[in-house]
Design a protein around this nucleic acid. Structure first.
Lengths: 193, 193, 193, 193
DNA sequence: CATGAATGAGCATTCATTCAT
DNA sequence: AATGAATGAATGCTCATTCAT
């Protein structure tokens, strides 16, 4: 009975994550989300201005939570450890929160130019942080003098590709630690014989 | 008046490519596509069972055309040449056909489980072909004994990531050849110092 | 089968007149109007941009038709004949088209500032025409030197008041000719003893 | 803190007058009225059964207040004085309470058959009182032997028409005394030359 | 008494699809 | 074959009303 403030808002966000992940923006019905959250349709509108607003807030919420999660990894002092942890944490996170993965790894329909920009900016920030880390690593002599921006895209692209394989091919079972280890090695040493 | 058979069908597919790319599946209206194709709304239904059917056929059409385009690259005898051509051709192709890039690089909202599977299968085939090429390269001693499947994802992920950067950040100008060259080198040699 | 063009549009306008008159703007449901017109809901939107648009077009349509009807009366050469015909025609018209009376004699909720202005302007035109006729009558010596604008309001107000009595008190039966005759006399001679 | 009983009820009625006048019944939101009254939404329902009930009570309240105001006029011993005071007081009252004018002079959408009847009855009472006064005046020889009911409608219609002109054409400035004087003369002497 | 968070019935509007021509 | 007028199922959102505190 003594629920914390924002309880309903959290219920709605959780339900929205589930429904949007399962059906996508256009197929997700406010009625479904409300039902899944255990609240009335009108209540959704007490907390969010519109369906679009709900989706946008959810997107940024998830993205920022994910980013915060990854920020710890940046602490790793050496590049090899950084890469391995980055892959391992990313894959574990996605494995543990498959609906979130489905939302974050998907491209979303152009809901809105502003939202689009917001999300693009969020993704860019992730790349920037990675590029910054890589630049520092290059200065420490841990990375060959390749473009940090290209390298960041290499890494991010690999994570996304693995994520797609692992989560959109739903019945695949895997060990994040093992894959992460191999992935990090491939990034560092290349595949050339 | 003496248009070749299949003319209208092609007009519709071309218009659909443009409209779906610009607006996404749910925002694209059959009326818009028909207008862009210069035919009546009813005519669209002479050639395609439904909007979903049109989208699915378009998707596979584009994907197969893209795949065919890439198949020539597989002819390349050595891994380095293969990679460089793969990147160069992919980026050039996307640069020349930005609307197609927008469709192929996007994850589409779950139109339909069947369509989803179809598209997933198509993407898997691309990965399989790459993996097969890499396996052969490994046997030729051109690739270290890494998992061909992982390597294929590394490459495909990098292409997608670069494509996103280049085509969703619309005002970016770039030289496919230069980027392809650097990308191939990064894949082969890794980034480790 | 060979209905004239604009047939559906006319059916809808007729149904809208009936429904708006019976229930007012906000209680009139598009579904009711469509049903009364014998068309599908969607069809209403083929001919009118929105419920507001339908109402506005109907309002102006009815008002102009009514105005046209009254314009003939202005032909009357002498003031007494003018007044008597004006009252008789107005009351007969309203008696014959009670739904129209209900719409024209009512003040409508502020649908829209633009519509409001439009309708106000239409009503003003009616007053202007009356005032112009009265001014001419004054110059012919048929009217005492009172303000034509005041006189126009006196007449229009009387018509509206009688209309209200007669049509909003639905079960009243009356003879337009008799009332018109008495009304014209009261306007001309006043009520003073 | 030590507000008189009925204080809140009065606040709500005052706020409702303002909001209903500005927006009309359907556009007026209970939330707006509550906010304007400085009370909670729920409080409105402590004093009024429903929005309809609030509107109906307000309508009758305003109408009766207006009627009471006019009743003093009936005291006037002679018809000319009666008419001039009636016009002057009506126009002054409306000028001083424009929101009330907007409500009383408007026809309201058929909220409800019962409300409709109630309001119609109220308006009829006003006409009846006028007719009664006129009948007495006729017996005093101050009015020609015209139908008191017709005369009452002539007067009431004129007041309403003037009110519409003056209050719905918002930027008009005028002198009630001057207009009242001319109006009374027109009613008494007619406009005939 | 007072409150406002919660609710869900109700409705305008959209648009894929059909079918008479 | 080609068309587009006609259709109605489907859904986001509003707001009067309730009731637990």
């Amino acid at each position: 009975m003594t629920r914390a403030t924002g309880d309903k808002r959290q219920q709605i966000l959780a339900a929205a994550t589930e429904i949007f992940a399962a059906r996508g923006f256009y197929q997700a019905k406010i009625a479904d989300i409300a039902a899944a959250a255990g609240v009335g349709k009108g209540t959704v509108y007490e907390y969010f201005r519109s369906k679009k607003d709900l989706f946008q807030q959810l997107l940024l919420h998830l993205f920022n939570a994910h980013l915060d999660h990854l920020l710890k990894v940046v602490q790793e002092p050496d590049l090899a450890g950084f890469l391995e942890r980055l892959f391992r944490e990313s894959l574990s996170y996605f494995q543990a929160h498959q609906e979130i993965a489905r939302i974050l790894l998907s491209d979303h329909p152009p809901i809105d130019a502003a939202t689009q920009r917001l999300l693009f900016a969020a993704k860019q920030e992730k790349l920037q942080r990675m590029a910054a880390y890589l630049k520092a690593a290059a200065e420490r002599g841990e990375m060959r003098p390749v473009s940090p921006w290209m390298a960041a895209n290499l890494i991010a692209g690999f994570i996304a590709a693995l994520g797609h394989q692992l989560f959109f091919d739903s019945d695949m079972d895997f060990d994040p630690a093992a894959i992460a280890s191999e992935a990090a090695a491939m990034i560092l040493q290349g595949i050339g014989g």
